[in-house]
Amino acid sequence: MEPQNLTTVSEFLLLGLSDDPELQPLLFGLFLSMYLVTVLGNLLIILVVSSDSHLHIPMYFFLSNLSSVDICFISTTIPKMLVNIQTHSKSITYAGCLTQMSFFFLFGCLDNLLLAVMAYDRFVAISHPLNYPVIMNPCLCGLLVLVSFFSSLLGSQIHCLMVSQLTFCTNVEIHHFFCDAPQLLHLACSDTSINTILMYFIGAIFGGVPLSGILCSYTRIVSSILRVPSTGGKYKAFSTCGSHLLVVCLFYGTGLGVYLSSPISPSPRKGAVASVMYTVVTPMLNPFIYSLRNRDVKRALWGMISRTA
């Protein structure tokens, strides 16, 4: 069968999480609820940080940026899924598929880099508390966010260009609820060896490098905490980074679990279900983790509620 050039492919079919018609209303209600909780929760974090002057410090500046990215991250996949369920359609246009994949990679990489930046911020706060305001000045904080954004944007465009060069046969069924690069490589009729190598190379850079930075930062943090003489001081120092560490474990644990197991997984549908953990559940839990475990955020939140009331 002769492969078609990608420009002649008008649409792909997103098979979603289940083919059972009776499950579609349940999936729609479940994911709509999760999407609304994620957006409202992260918007609340942004509002609280911006409205309370006591939270205008680097730690919460990065947190508000992370919340913004989480909103964008989940918005690249779930709205299209909800529309397809509601309209009983599985199609996504070629341009829409590439756009979704590009934005998914952009905000996924930006999530990685911001988590690494937040780990560095906690390292400076704990290991160099006296020099913290000087080192983590507003210019450096803004520069770190901008570098993270433009690096992620470059990676996403390379990713998109790589996939746009593929050729496909007549099979355009994607066993997922969004356009993911590994799934598109699996559908391609042309040789994908170079594309696969490049995909893993880019993944290693935007996944491995931030993770290495996080591990290095926490190694130094633990070393600094162990030198604190009092037990209360150790607890206070560790409590400042406990929420961030929990989010890192959730995001990287689920994300790496999905992508490392996908080559050996016998069922693509199971991989799609597992992807829900890092694409939906982790962004939804982030506001609760940071608000319920952080006294400053809870104080600012109750203050804002009392002023509104």
Rank of each mutant, 00 (worst) to 15 (best):
S217L: 07
G203Q: 07
S212K: 06
R220E: 12
C216P: 00
N195S: 15
S243W: 08
T240E: 12
K234R: 15
T240K: 10
L166H: 09
C169R: 11
F206N: 06
F177M: 02
H175C: 00
I214D: 01
D191L: 03
L245M: 12
I202V: 14
S239R: 14
T167M: 14
I174P: 00
S190W: 07
T240R: 10
K234G: 02
A237W: 07
C241Q: 10
A204L: 15
C241Y: 11
F168K: 08
L184C: 07
I205Q: 10
F238K: 06
N195W: 08
C216K: 10
A181G: 04
L246N: 04
S224I: 04
N171M: 06
G208Q: 10
Q183D: 15
T170A: 08
F206H: 13
M199T: 13
L211G: 01
G213E: 05
F238T: 02
N195V: 04
C169I: 05
F177Y: 13
Y200G: 05
L198S: 13
T170R: 12
L246R: 08
L215S: 04
L211M: 07
G232C: 05
L226I: 06
L184G: 04
T192M: 06
M199L: 15
H244F: 12
L215Q: 02
H186K: 13
D191K: 10
T192P: 02
L215F: 08
F201I: 11
G232W: 01
G242K: 14
